[in-house]
Design a protein around this nucleic acid. Structure first.
Lengths: 212, 212
DNA sequence: AAGTGTGAAAAGTTTCACAGCG
DNA sequence: CGCTGTGAAACTTTTCACACTT
């Protein structure tokens, strides 16, 4: 459990990759404040981590800092952007536009961070359009052909839990490589596919443990 | 980073607590299938972990298994339920009923898992009610008095990122101990408060790293 | 003087392997 | 015999501390 990723010969902790995204956001804020260098102490505080961890995380990808000065904001941001594979816009599809799915479509929180949700799929496309969703909604059956023709690699999965495994099988067979799964179920996929689970009830339950 | 929790003298990894919730769900499924014992191998497979890890996780809380047989489904479920503090219904409030917030209110995914969202708060309560939300929606200004009078300990935070820190300060001052935060920001709170972040764009970005 | 880069130590977590119980 | 409970080993991740550079 908790494997690591390899780039060349270096092992990069999975958690470090999450933190990279956080650093990137903080850098964008700094950049708009017209600062052009930042120290590990400052950036770490903004990101909510310790300075040593920040330096170690960045060191996995190379050496960007200047001793005695800090990190160049623009260059570091660009480097992280590239490391995360965010140089080019990634198209994303959303599957299952029920309550939660259509809510996410209206939310536009992904667009703000630079992901384009290019289409949604549902067993009942008309009902979804009626919910005030402006993104094109297609019937379930068109999933495979769309994924292939548009070379989509990322999918947001919001179907009811009992369909989740069957749908993810279809997605993977059609070429999807990353799934953001909102169903409270452990999806079985091959090693070529990455699944991230967002389990809202689980998070509340976890909180509940700490309330005394 | 990544501290552990203590119950009496035992250190319980934070991750084990997340897994407890997963085990609990799997047990509920088994229970409805009228099985009354389950082995670590079976339950572990359902939960997506290794048998040894399951046994170790459960052992943090006591000894429930019978060697040669397995775990009693009902008793184990009840024990986990208690360990997670889920014996009694926990009231939850939702703050910030914009796009995402009102979507979560209509979603009812929390109710399904046994949490009751008893009220929502927004700067503009009328607009929220108009969005088809049936849970009572109050004005922002009533937050403190409500939290105190209803002894609410858990809050779901969906306000725009620029208000998140200010709102969480008010929540904590009023007595909230656990926050499920949907804003892409690192909230500063004291050690008596637990914050869980659900950062949707971050999860997509993380996936994007693994797409090659 | 300020601040990075990093080896080494510490801390945390998972997996193994097997003793021991029913 | 089957399966739990668990110490010890293996592994991963974080933190420390300081040499080194600008």
């Amino acid at each position: 459990m908790e494997p690591v990723e390899k780039i060349g010969k270096i092992d990069i902790p999975k958690k470090a990759i999450y933190r990279l995204s956080i650093y990137y956001r903080c850098l964008q804020k700094l950049s708009s404040n017209e600062l052009d260098t930042v120290s590990s102490t400052t950036l770490a505080r903004a990101a909510g981590v310790k300075p040593a961890q920040l330096r170690k995380d960045l060191a996995y990808f190379g050496q960007f800092g200047t001793r005695g000065l800090g990190y160049p904001v623009e260059i570091l941001a660009a480097t992280i952007r590239e490391a995360l594979g965010r140089e080019h816009l990634q198209p994303v599809i959303l599957v299952g536009a029920g309550n939660l799915g259509s809510a996410l479509l209206r939310y536009h929180g992904f667009e703000k961070e630079g992901f384009e949700v290019i289409a949604a799929f549902d067993a009942n496309p008309e009902a979804t359009r009626a919910r005030g969703v402006t993104i094109p909604v297609f019937a379930d059956s068109e999933l495979e052909s769309f994924i292939k023709s548009e070379s989509v690699k990322l999918a947001i999965l919001c179907v009811p839990v009992e369909f989740a495994q069957a749908v993810v099988n279809r997605l993977v067979a059609a070429g999807i490589q990353g799934v953001l799964n909102f169903s409270p179920i452990v999806l079985e996929v091959g090693p070529e596919v990455t699944v991230n689970n967002v389990d809202l009830a689980l998070e509340l339950e976890h909180l509940s443990y700490f309330i005394r």
